[in-house]
Simulated scan of single mutants.
Amino acid sequence: MASENESPYDPKRTGSWLVCKTCGTQFPTDDKHKVTTCFICDDPRQYVPPSGQSFVSLDALRSSGHKNVFTPIAADPERLIAINSQPKVAIGQRAILVRTPQGNVLWDCITLLDDETIAKVKELGGLKAIVISHPHYYSTHLEWARAFDCPVYLAKEDRLWLSQQDRNRQIFITENETHVFGTTVLKLGGHFPGSLVMLFEGRLLIADTFFPTPSGLGNWDADAVGAPRKRPLQMNSFAFMWSYPNMIPLAPDAIIHMWVILKNYEFSSTHGAFPGLDIVKTPAEMKQRVLESMQIQIRYSGHGAHAMLEETIM
Score class of each variant (00 low, 15 high):
residue 44 P to I: 12
residue 44 P to G: 05
residue 44 P to Q: 08
residue 44 P to L: 09
residue 45 R to A: 08
residue 45 R to N: 04
residue 46 Q to Y: 08
residue 46 Q to R: 07
residue 46 Q to F: 11
residue 47 Y to S: 11
residue 47 Y to D: 04
residue 47 Y to R: 07
residue 48 V to W: 07
residue 48 V to Y: 07
residue 48 V to N: 11
residue 49 P to S: 12
residue 49 P to I: 12
residue 50 P to G: 10
residue 50 P to W: 14
residue 51 S to D: 11
residue 51 S to R: 09
residue 51 S to E: 13
residue 51 S to L: 05
residue 51 S to A: 15
residue 52 G to K: 00
residue 53 Q to P: 02
residue 53 Q to R: 14
residue 54 S to M: 02
residue 54 S to C: 04
residue 54 S to G: 07
residue 55 F to S: 02
residue 55 F to C: 05
residue 55 F to A: 02
residue 57 S to I: 06
residue 57 S to A: 01
residue 57 S to W: 12
residue 57 S to E: 09
residue 58 L to F: 05
residue 58 L to V: 06
residue 59 D to C: 02
residue 60 A to P: 00
residue 60 A to Q: 14
residue 60 A to S: 12
residue 61 L to F: 04
residue 61 L to T: 04
residue 62 R to N: 12
residue 62 R to S: 06
residue 63 S to K: 13
residue 63 S to M: 06
residue 63 S to P: 02
residue 63 S to F: 02
residue 64 S to D: 13
residue 64 S to W: 05
residue 64 S to T: 10
residue 64 S to V: 04
residue 65 G to H: 06
residue 66 H to D: 06
residue 66 H to R: 11
residue 68 N to G: 04
residue 68 N to P: 01
residue 69 V to P: 00
residue 69 V to L: 11
residue 69 V to I: 14
residue 69 V to W: 03
residue 69 V to G: 01
residue 70 F to Y: 13
residue 70 F to P: 08
residue 71 T to F: 00
residue 71 T to H: 00
residue 72 P to E: 07
residue 72 P to I: 08
residue 72 P to A: 03
residue 73 I to R: 09
residue 73 I to W: 10
residue 73 I to T: 08
residue 73 I to P: 04
residue 74 A to S: 14
residue 74 A to H: 15
residue 74 A to N: 11
residue 74 A to Q: 15
residue 75 A to M: 05
residue 75 A to I: 14
residue 75 A to E: 13
residue 75 A to N: 09
residue 76 D to L: 13
residue 76 D to T: 08
residue 76 D to W: 11
residue 77 P to D: 03
residue 77 P to R: 03
residue 77 P to V: 10
residue 78 E to Q: 14
residue 78 E to W: 06
residue 78 E to S: 14
residue 78 E to C: 05
residue 79 R to N: 15
residue 79 R to G: 01
residue 79 R to V: 04
residue 79 R to D: 01
residue 80 L to C: 01
residue 80 L to H: 02
residue 80 L to N: 00
residue 81 I to K: 03
residue 81 I to A: 10
residue 82 A to M: 10
residue 82 A to D: 10
residue 83 I to K: 06
residue 83 I to G: 08
residue 85 S to K: 07
residue 85 S to D: 06
residue 85 S to N: 10
residue 86 Q to H: 14
residue 86 Q to D: 01
residue 86 Q to N: 09
residue 86 Q to M: 05
residue 86 Q to P: 01
residue 87 P to A: 07
residue 87 P to G: 07
residue 89 V to T: 15
residue 89 V to S: 08
residue 89 V to N: 01
residue 89 V to Y: 02
residue 89 V to R: 00
residue 89 V to C: 03
residue 90 A to C: 12
residue 90 A to E: 14
residue 90 A to L: 13
residue 90 A to M: 14
residue 91 I to C: 03
residue 91 I to L: 09
residue 91 I to E: 00
residue 91 I to Q: 00
